[in-house]
């Protein structure tokens, strides 16, 4: 089996995990999580230089990943567990009392893989920039990645961080924007038009790339290009086009599934799209 096929198989299982976790918890955010299953898989199973078994908060000598749009927690927890940060069976505790798998990611319960709480939007890129500066001070030449939402681009702090990253030449960071065009109240272009995101990030001084976040071939082609652009006195951002709810036809092309769990019938219909490739938790 080719590497791409293997990654696709993992992503299929991640999508199963997302649906099962959210259905079981009767709450969560399936749309964005399904849309980002491919990038999460590519990062944790191919791109990141990391040590799942030996998680440390400081992450010396490792690439770091920050999830700014914390409501994608189900997808993140799935790849963290599947890549070895914690037991896969713990996914069954998602959003339940006494869990380490909080509704939005948190450090309080000590879940390996999570380095800062997120959920209140707009904060992750600033934290990631700080971690990137820390790496520079420590002469650690690993990279820092930060996934953000598109609706999140409406937060002012994002642009404070954008200005800082370019102004201070933080060139060991790669931001990724999940551009699915949907947010809670509707399409981004209606809720608050984002304008030309590519031009905006470029104008702020970042190297900007685009990729199809639901095409594994494109992801593993573009991210190495982004990595090549690091170390050149400019931060890097990838505008990643995705479909919210990717893989489940009735969840795609709408904002309706941003933060709603499926009922039994919808769950059965949705899960039938994804083969149990790695074994359910």
């Amino acid at each position: 089996m080719s590497e791409i096929d293997e990654l696709k198989q993992v992503a299929t299982q991640v999508r199963r995990d997302i649906l099962r976790m959210i259905y079981d918890a009767k709450s969560g955010h399936p749309g964005g999580a399904l849309g980002c299953a491919d990038i999460f898989t590519a990062l944790y199973f191919k791109i990141l230089k990391h040590d799942p078994g030996g998680f440390s908060m400081d992450g010396f000598g490792e690439d770091l990943f920050f999830l700014s749009n914390g409501h994608l927690s189900a997808a993140w927890y799935s790849v963290l567990a599947r890549s070895g940060y914690f037991p896969v069976k713990e996914l069954s505790t998602f959003r339940k009392l006494n869990t380490r798998l909080q509704g939005h990611p948190a450090t309080e319960e000590g879940l390996p893989g999570v380095r800062v709480a997120s959920g209140s939007l707009g904060q992750g890129l600033s934290v990631a920039l700080g971690a990137a500066l820390s790496k520079k001070l420590n002469n650690d030449n690993h990279l820092v990645y930060c996934l953000m939402g598109d609706g999140e681009q409406q937060e002012g702090q994002i642009w404070e961080a954008a200005m800082f990253g370019a102004g201070r030449e933080v060139d060991n960071i790669i931001g990724i924007i999940d551009y699915n065009g949907q947010q809670i109240d509707g399409p981004c272009c209606e809720v608050m038009p984002l304008g030309d995101l590519h031009a905006k990030w470029k104008a702020f001084g970042w190297s900007v790339l685009e990729m199809n976040g639901n095409d594994m071939e494109d992801i593993v082609k573009i991210i190495p290009k982004a990595i090549e652009k690091t170390g050149q006195k400019k931060p890097v951002v990838i505008i990643m086009n995705t479909d919210m709810g990717y893989g489940v036809d009735f969840m795609m092309g709408t904002h309706e599934w941003h933060g709603k769990p499926p009922n039994e019938e919808q769950f059965n219909k949705a899960i039938s799209n994804f083969e149990e490739t790695l074994g359910d938790y």
Binding site: M57, G124, S126, V127, L129, G130, A131, L133, A161, F164
Partner: peptide, 9 residues
């Protein structure tokens, strides 16, 4: 946010 990130490391 940057301050929070700097503690990591």
């Amino acid at each position: 946010g940057i301050a929070a990130g700097l503690t990591i490391g």
